[in-house]
Structures are given as C-alpha cells and as structure tokens.
Amino acid sequence: MLDTDMRRAEALGMTWSDASVENRSILIEQRFAADRSVRSPKSKKSVRRISISETLTSYLEFWKKEQAREMEAFGLEQVKGTPLVHSFERTKDRHPQVNFMDLNGFSRWFRNFSVENGFGKFEGVRTYHYVKETVDGETISKRYEHKEWLELRDYC
C-alpha cells in the first residue's frame, strides 16, 4: 500500500489474478468492504491499472511462493482467486480455508507494525506518500485521483 497508494480496501481485495509481475502492474477492480464482501471500487475512476516498482515486483514473486507453502501446510491450493493478503480460518466443520483479511484486523496489525518497526503512528496509509524513487507531482496527483495537477509540496 505504501508503494502504490492504494486504499486499504483495494489492497485487501486483491487476488493473484490482479497482480502481473510480468508487466509490473496491478489491476484494481474490486475492494474488500467492511461488511466482509467483495465489491466494486468506490468510483468508476477507481478502476485502474497501476505500475509497480521493481522492489514490489520482487516482493510479490517472493510472497506468492511463501503463501503457496503456507497454504500447502494446511492442505490448501493457491489459485488465481486467492487473496494476496489473507487470513486462515476454519469452517464450521473445522476445515481450514483462506479468506480476505478483515479491514479492522489489518488496521490494528498495521498500526502495531508501524510502531514496533520505528515508522511512527500512522493515522491512515494513504495520508502519507512514501516516495522511494523520484516521482513527479502529476503522477502523484493521478495516484490520489485529483482532477488537477498539484504541487509535490501539497503532499508534504
């Protein structure tokens, strides 16, 4: 989320069919809502393909293999519809299954992770634009879905 400026619900709604490491891009066409349902994004403009950094591409390649190993330990198979960010839960008959991660649970985890790793306390991930590489103001404006170009200083 820090590398792409996706909304929390957009990131948590992603499946492996949305990530293209070959094209270094992510397709955002759904979100995981607070009522634990998969829905369309907030607006028509929110449906978009975004480019991702080489760092994120490498991490996604690593995570896909790691997640497949974790799922295999539970007797589960990773498929294109598997959420990238997931939780393991048990069905009523005690069989393990992979689900989208609850938004509130993720927020709680992210706040704790940020503090424990010295990033400080974030109020919201999209509020802070993490720029590792040089990014121009027009690109950032598009990522934040502003109708007009804003100066980079407007985000600092």
Rank of each mutant, 00 (worst) to 15 (best):
G81D: 13
Y59W: 15
F106T: 01
G75M: 13
R49H: 08
S51G: 09
F32C: 09
K132H: 07
E54C: 03
T127P: 00
M71L: 15
E89W: 05
W16S: 11
S25E: 11
S107W: 04
Y128A: 15
I50H: 02
E66V: 07
G118I: 04
T57C: 14
K92T: 10
K132P: 00
R24F: 02
I28V: 10
F122R: 13
R48V: 08
S37C: 07
L103P: 04
E77R: 13
T127S: 15
G124Q: 13
Q78M: 14
D18L: 05
W149H: 12
K42P: 00
M14E: 08
S141T: 03
K147C: 02
R49C: 09
T15R: 11
R8F: 02
E54Q: 12
S43R: 08
R7N: 05
V79A: 10
A19C: 12
S141L: 05
A68R: 10
K42A: 02
E145W: 05
L103H: 00
Q67L: 13
K121W: 08
H146C: 02
Q97I: 09
T55W: 07
C156S: 11
L12C: 03
G118F: 00
F113M: 13
K44W: 01
P96I: 01
H146G: 02
V135W: 05
D5P: 00
Y155R: 08
R24G: 01
E70W: 04
M101A: 06
S114Q: 06
I26H: 01
D3K: 03
W109V: 06
S20G: 05
G120S: 09
L12N: 03
N112C: 04
S25P: 01
T55H: 10
F32G: 06
F106N: 02
E151D: 14
L152R: 08
R153V: 08
R8K: 11
R36K: 14
R39E: 15
L76E: 07
S20A: 08
L152V: 04
R90K: 13
V131A: 12
L152M: 11
H146S: 03
F74K: 15
E77D: 10
F113Q: 08
F74M: 14
E29I: 06
Q78D: 03
R111Y: 03
A33T: 09
D154G: 02
V85W: 11
V79Y: 07
F110L: 13
E123D: 15
D93A: 10
M6E: 06
I50E: 06
E70Y: 04
E22K: 14
H129C: 07
K65H: 07
F88V: 14
V98W: 01
K42C: 01
T82F: 02
G105P: 01
A9M: 09
Y155W: 11
V115Y: 07
V21W: 01
V125Y: 03
R108N: 06
Q97M: 13
R108P: 00
M14D: 04
E66F: 09
E77L: 11
G105E: 04
H86E: 11
E123G: 15
K147A: 10
A33R: 03
F122W: 12
L12A: 03
D136M: 05
F113S: 09
D5N: 13
K44E: 14
A73C: 04
